[in-house]
Nucleic acid binder design. Structure first.
Lengths: 243, 243
DNA sequence: GCCCGGTTCCAACAAAAGTTAAGGACGCCG
DNA sequence: CGGCGTCCTTAACTTTTGTTGGAACCGGGC
C-alpha cells in the first residue's frame, strides 16, 4: 500500500470526527510517512518504550493493552484502519501500555518532530488531533463502564456494537456481519473475564440466536436483541464535529 | 477563597506535570475565573449537557461517573484540588459523563472561549493542557486494568495508593493517613462491585492489618503489604514532564 | 495426506461476587 | 435530648465467574 492511500484514510477519518479545511488536507498530504508491514500478533510499541513516532493504521486490526504483575493482560481498545492509536505518545513520551497487531497490518509512521512542527504552524490541525485524543479518552471511559458494570454477555455485545459502528464509518461493515479478529482468549482479555467464560458467553449469545461468532467474524442474527443487550449509546464516540 | 488562590493551585499542578515558563504563569494569572461553591454530592456538569466552561477544583473532592440504563453507576475518576476534571469539554462539547462533588467544594470556571483564545496565543500552554488531558486518559487506562483484572481487594488498594500519591503532590497526604471521602456505596461504584462486597473487602484489609478506613479517612497500617497488594506502578501518572 | 499447535468447546468443581434482609452506629435536626 | 435517616455491618443464600482438565476441531507445514 502506497503512503498516499494511508494519508487518504487519515483524511477520511478526520473529516468524520472533526471539521477539516482544504488547507489542512494539503498539510496532511505533505506529511512524510514511513510505511512498514507487521505480521499478526506482533508488538508495535512496547510498554516502557520511548516513542519517537506516531503510528497510523493503514490496514489491519491492532489493540492496546496493559499487563499486570500477575501476568494478566487487559485489552484497552481495539483499533481499525484510519486511526492513530498512539497519538498520545506525542506528549507522553514513555509508553504506559503496549500497542500490538491482531492481524497482519500495514502501519504508517510520522515522527513526533514533524507533528510538533505541524501543530505550531497550524493550530487548527493541532486541535483536530487533540480532539482525536479526547475521543480516545471518551472510549476508555465507556470501556471502564463496560468492564465495571455490565454482566459479561452485555460486555461482549457492547464491544461488538461499538466495533461495528466504527467499521461502518470506514465502510467495512456491510450487511449483517463484520470482522472482529480476536481469539476467545483475547475477547476474555478485553472483557475482563477468562477465556473459558468468554466461551460460555459466546455460546450463550449463539444459543439465544443473537450473534454468531466464528473465525474472527461476527454475524448478527437478531439486531433488536443485540442492541437491547448491549445497552449501547454511541454519544461517547463523538462522531459529529459540531457536538 | 479568592480566585488568586485557585490560580496558584493550577500553576502548582502544571509546574509538576509539565514544564511551565514565567510567561505562561503570567498568562494564567490573567485568566478570568468565576468562583462558585458547591455542596457535597451535587452534580456540577451533567451527562448530555453542553459545557461552556471548564472547571478547576480549588478545594474539595469530585468524581466523574457514568450511569447505565439499568441504573448502575460507575465512577471513572476521583479528582482533587488543582485539577481540571472537564478540560475535555473544550473540544467534546456535549458531556458523555457526569461531574459531581463528593465533599463541599470550591470550583473556578474558565470559559471555553477564553481558553481557546489563550491556546491560539500561546501554543506552549495549549500543549501543557493537551498533555494534561492525555494524563487523564492514561489514568483511565489504569482504571480499566484495575476494574478488569485485579481481584477486589487489590482494586481497593490500588485506588488508595493512587489517590495518596496524587495527594502527596499537593501536600495533602502527610504521615500515614489521608482523605478518601467516599461512602462504601461509592467505593463499590469505583471498583465495579456492590456496596456489600465493598464492605467485605474493607473489613478484610482491616483484619489483615493493611489499612484502616473510617469516615472518609484512610490510615495505612502496613505500607509493605499495601504496596504489594496494590501492584502499583506510578509510571502512568506521568509526573515528570521530561518523560 | 498427516501431524502438530493453537483454538474452540465443554463439564465438574471451587471461589468470588451479588442479593436480600436486618440490626446497629452515628450525626443532624427539631 | 430524642427521633430519623444515612451509612456501616453482618449473615445466609444465590448467581456468576474462575479453575482445572480434557476432547474435538481446524489450518498450515512437511
Amino acid at each position: 500500500m502506497p503512503s498516499d492511500a494511508i494519508r487518504a484514510a487519515l483524511v477520511k477519518r478526520l473529516r468524520i470526527s472533526s471539521g477539516i479545511t482544504d488547507d489542512d488536507v494539503k498539510e496532511i498530504e505533505a506529511l512524510p510517512i514511513v510505511v512498514r508491514q507487521f505480521p499478526a500478533e506482533t508488538p508495535v510499541v512496547r510498554d516502557g518504550e520511548r516513542a519517537t513516532d506516531c503510528c497510523l493504521i493503514a490496514d489491519g486490526f491492532c489493540v492496546r493493552s496493559k499487563t499486570i504483575a500477575s501476568g494478566k493482560r487487559q485489552i484497552l481498545s481495539i483499533h481499525i484502519p484510519g486511526e492513530i492509536p498512539d497519538l498520545m505518545s506525542l506528549f507522553l513520551h514513555v509508553m504506559d501500555h503496549e500497542l500490538s497487531t491482531l492481524t497482519p497490518s500495514t502501519l504508517g509512521f510520522i515522527s513526533h518532530e514533524t507533528l510538533q512542527k505541524l501543530h505550531r504552524r497550524s493550530p487548527g490541525i493541532a486541535e483536530m488531533f487533540w480532539r482525536d485524543t479526547l475521543i480516545d479518552a471518551a472510549m476508555f471511559r465507556e470501556w471502564i463502564v463496560n468492564v465495571g458494570q455490565r454482566p459479561a454477555p452485555a460486555r461482549l455485545a457492547h464491544v461488538m456494537v461499538e466495533l461495528r459502528e466504527r467499521l461502518k464509518l470506514i465502510g467495512r461493515a456491510e450487511g449483517n456481519s463484520f470482522d472482529m479478529p480476536l481469539t476467545q482468549e483475547q475477547i476474555g482479555e478485553a472483557l475482563g473475564i477468562t477465556a473459558v467464560h468468554a466461551n460460555r458467553v459466546i455460546r450463550q449469545l449463539r444459543q439465544e440466536g443473537i450473534v454468531e461468532l466464528q473465525r474472527g467474524r461476527v454475524t448478527v442474527l437478531d439486531e433488536r436483541k443485540l442492541l437491547e443487550l448491549a445497552d449501547f449509546d454511541g454519544r461517547y464516540l463523538h462522531q459529529s464535529p459540531m457536538l
